[in-house]
Design a protein around this nucleic acid. Sequence first.
DNA 1: CACCAGGTTGACC
DNA 2: GGTCAACATGGT
Length: 211
Amino acid sequence: MSTIFKRLLDHFGPQGWWPAETPFEVMVGAILTQNTSWKNVERAIENLKNAGCLTPERITSCPLNELRELIKPAGFYNQKALYLKELSRFLLDHPLEELATLPTHELRRLLLSIKGIGKETADSILLYVFNRPVFVADRYSHRVFSRLGIWRGPYRYEEIRSLVEEEMKDPEELKEFHALVVELAKNYCRPQPRCDACPLKDLCSFNREGE
DNA sequence: CACCAGGTTGACC
DNA sequence: GGTCAACATGGT
């Protein structure tokens, strides 16, 4: 696992995730990017910035219809507008300084209680906002680990997360690793793979089927 | 034209 | 516990 990380870092270089100016922007981006390309999320965030709506206060006071229009480029805008309202309400009730004092498992439980925040979004926030040592075990990681023969069987979020967290404890490394796995999968591990140019070609076991 | 994207929810079994 | 359709825009 650590070897793979070094290989990826060597090949792609530091990815600099998460791209955002404030912790709140990270959280908003984490919700908006759910099953959505980052390119579309950028437009939505740009709209929110231009409207001065990138704080919990302004999103809470923003009319729902207006909020929907602002984030439209990110897709699923009806439910995501509600999710952003939920998140903002939560943050007004629980300041970041308070949340930062909680142990990771309690903070995760709190985040998961917010409608619109599931496991992956919660872990993205734990990692990129609160610097907690967690791995974001998204579908890309499952695809990559399956192709590398590290993981057999179906996609199970918690099990893949544990697999990585047992070996890697440094939040900074976990941040980069998640970003690098995404980069690898996007470029070389598509449904129609291009294993010829893959930087981990020599490690890839393609004799087995199963995503 | 079909398929994919930095998932989550609620219904159902 | 697990599975599944619905959700919506923009790029390839």
